[in-house]
Nucleic acid binder design. Structure first.
Lengths: 221, 221, 221, 221
DNA sequence: AATGAATGAGGGTTCATTCAT
DNA sequence: TATGAATGAACCCTCATTCAT
């Protein structure tokens, strides 16, 4: 039906591809040198186009930043909905959520340390990002309270636990490198385990841990 | 012997006080709005002086940023040396170090989320900060390996454990507020406990934890 | 073949024309009010563009200054190579060199008194300019020594002679005005004659001098 | 009559000594790094006093600059009046004037390349300096015309001759160093000779030149 | 007379953004 | 759609000058 075996994309598709390229390169550069130390000229040069061209694909520099926060929000949302779908005790749901979230951030956002740039968001986006974050923190808190209630978690200060988790997770982009020794799967599994051990009433079943470790070792290569 | 009960300070002392005021206000503003979004005019205005005056106390804007990184380095150093002085098993030393470090950051650096601004450091300072951080990470890794060797810690990937800890700790400035509910002592104690439970072979003795909790509750007020 | 009789220039040519306009206007302003007393705003305003636009054509203010020193260096180089190509006694080569140099400075650099601003050069350029100047002084010294050796020049202190010549020449931009009575040709011819009479063993042959004078008179108009 | 063998100076004398010290150091620094690249802080530091103190001795930075131009004007005036007092042909008076002037500039103003900073003078001083310079140039022109009239000088363009002389002379501060090989006496004698040979109808008497050279050799040590 | 802290004007430079081609 | 030239708003930093002590 379509010519060229669909290799020719619609102009809308091409537009999106180009926009993604802009975002990807910007994310890379922002992560490497920081948002403020990266000029759009740098991004354009890296893409081999002129600066003005970028404005065909993004409204302005701040929009690029917002895209990453938006994406992070989506990943967080996914992590919750998939964990809820799987069900289980509070501890189990918490574990699934964290694992999913860490994996998603690492896998999809790559080295996007951009998420730390918060003040550079335009006020309205900053507000949205704040609300998103608050909502997720609250969802986490509820998950922890649920775990405490069903006996799967120790009675801890949920707020502080969440802050601790979020810190560990948000720091990942600072040291994660796609080309490094640690794979997203290994990181997600091991870090989740590390974090949750401080919280669960009984440590995860030995069998499970062993399996996870084996997987990680396989991934590591 | 001295009049005014020494309330009258030498000019060198006054100079230092003023410099401290500059640093404090700058740190506050940087934490609030970010390093790049804060102009020295803002800082000066907040202090009720003119911009030029600031330059009597700091060399330039980047020096201010470096001061905070330098201070963080000192706190880290202290945390290690005091823990080493106290001695104990690898797990105990690790606990002491973390507690000291978290407490120091929270107490002395206040809300200094400035530590996240890394790219804004001048190249030479960035290098120094990098080296400092690497050295401390290495020292932590060695502590963990010691703990694993003496049986006080589980056999975990030391690098990943440290990254997790550092993330949690470095995130503190993002949510800590001196006027908030959580005191530095409580944070240091509880977060250390949370993080270490993922690592220690046997949980800390109940008595110890209970005491810590009691202390924290007292502090909370 | 080409339309508009090639009056339509390529964008690279336009670019160069604009850059030249910037340099010319800057040189004019610097000569008039001095390098430090001329802001780039002044230059931009005189060109009817905004200050930022200038940075499309020059890297910074100091680069403008350097351009003039570089150009002066080229003129000096030309003056030597063309004189060497013509050959003759030491006195003759010295005469040709000086004449060419004075003419070049006056004609091509116009009223560029900018050459006196030496301390404003960036250190690396100052070094380059120093080396250039030293090299040319040395070349002049050797020319004089050659002239002394071949008997065409009196035995004078070559250094002091060169300093004297250079002073007279470098002063030209201070009083030369393209719209004034004295033409570049006249200045070059007459000043060279004046300076060399202090040096040559025998005054130039009367015929030659007469011819030169006649030429100058013709030029003066 | 006076105690302390007059070693104790009146306060007015002390004041003048200090002012001279300020001017001397400023002149030194200005010559070395240029007027604009030298801050009053530099000058004060070199003198071991605070910046504010300088303002007890000079009105402002521009006054310092003017002092040097004023002094140069005085030296020029002296050179004329002493030459006129000695009398002689136009050529002889011109020679005496130039010699005196070069010697004075070198001897009294030392390495004061400051005289090149003209645009930094305050407008009123710039005007005064201009008038001074014009007056001296005119006086020189008249001297040359006198020499042409009395047959002691060739018929040259007086303006251009003067410009040439002034250039050579004003350049002296650029290369003269009090600690260098060339003494003020030698410079004054030799440069005057060099310059005048281009102008005089008959070269200076051999005996005279020989004497001058002998003196210079003695000075050179 | 000396200090040194404070000031405030001014200039160089960067860069996100716009727009005509 | 792509270009690249132009813009103008910021902002850092310097430094001559003033002034209270």
């Amino acid at each position: 039906m379509s010519r060229w075996n669909n290799a020719l994309q619609t102009s809308a598709e091409i537009q999106k591809l180009k926009r993604d390229a802009v975002l990807r390169e910007a994310g890379r550069a922002f992560s490497e040198r920081g948002y403020h130390s990266t000029s759009l000229d740098d991004v354009a040069k890296a893409l081999g186009v002129s600066k003005g061209t970028l404005y065909n694909y993004v409204k302005d520099k701040q929009e690029i930043l917002w895209e990453f926060h938006r994406l992070a929000g989506e990943i967080a949302e996914d992590s919750f909905s998939s964990a809820r779908a799987q069900g289980g005790s509070g501890a189990e749901m918490l574990r699934n959520t964290l694992k999913h979230f860490i994996y998603g951030l690492t896998q999809e956002l790559g080295a996007c340390r951009v998420l730390m740039e918060f003040n550079a968001l335009r006020p309205e986006d900053r507000l949205k990002a704040s609300k998103l974050r608050d909502a997720f923190e609250q969802a986490y808190v509820e998950l922890i309270e649920l775990g405490i209630a069903d006996g799967s978690l120790r009675a801890v200060d949920p707020k502080l636990a969440i802050f601790t988790f979020m810190g560990a997770i948000n720091w990942v982009p600072r040291w994660y490198s796609p080309s490094g020794r640690l794979t997203p799967e290994y990181i997600a599994e091991t870090m989740t385990d590390l974090l949750l051990r401080g919280l669960v009433r009984k440590p995860a079943a030995p069998g499970r841990r062993a399996a996870a470790r084996k997987q990680a070792v396989k991934d590591r290569r």
